[in-house]
Amino acid sequence: MQHDHHDHDHAHAVLPPDPALRVRALETILTQKGLVDPAALDEIIDTYAHRVGPQEGARVVARAWADPAFRAALLDDAGPVLDDMGLTGRQGEHVTVVENTPERHNVIVCTLCSCYPWPLLGIPPAWYKSDEYRARVVREPRRVLAEFGLELPAEQAVRVWDSTAEMRYLVLPMRPAGTEGWNEADLARLVTRDSMVGTGRPRAADEVSAP
């Protein structure tokens, strides 16, 4: 975070950096014109800064691992299933869930900007938004995944899914071994953000305290 107060004595309020003042200015003008409601802004900030995050996606993955009928419905058409769980997209976008198998590993990207399944994963990490990830994961996915510590067997194909404003993706990772009989809440503790983007694996059963 930037602070521009190194040569001031704090007699006045700390002056925000220039872009922050421009955002403030836009907000003031657009509010005065009735185009936005300040209460709506506060609600959106609270939602994305504090509430929505990968724990939502983890609930979906854990239920898919525990319930074969749910899993089948989710993979067939995720929209109604996610609606039922209250995880509907704000922009009316569709979500497709892509399943990892021993034959195919899936990874998601947005090459154009940074489309991401917000209701399931929250705000994307900086690397997801970086030019480097967006360009390289398409060109050399195995190498990028190796940089994330994910070495895939040669016989496992890699499929890269490019998100758009209308279509977002969520990876359904493979259920870790040794978790037979675990309930959904315990399974959800194994699910990481990166495992749902495809740049990581879920935690192993022995990485969390046994249920």
Partner: peptide
């Protein structure tokens, strides 16, 4: 590229959150 922890703040600066929210709103 390298992975980053999940528990880092979602926005690095308050104005990042504000410009995001303004656009969504």
């Amino acid at each position: 590229l390298r992975p980053t922890p999940e528990d880092t703040p979602r926005f690095d600066a308050p104005w990042h959150a504000q410009v995001f929210a303004l656009t969504v709103a």
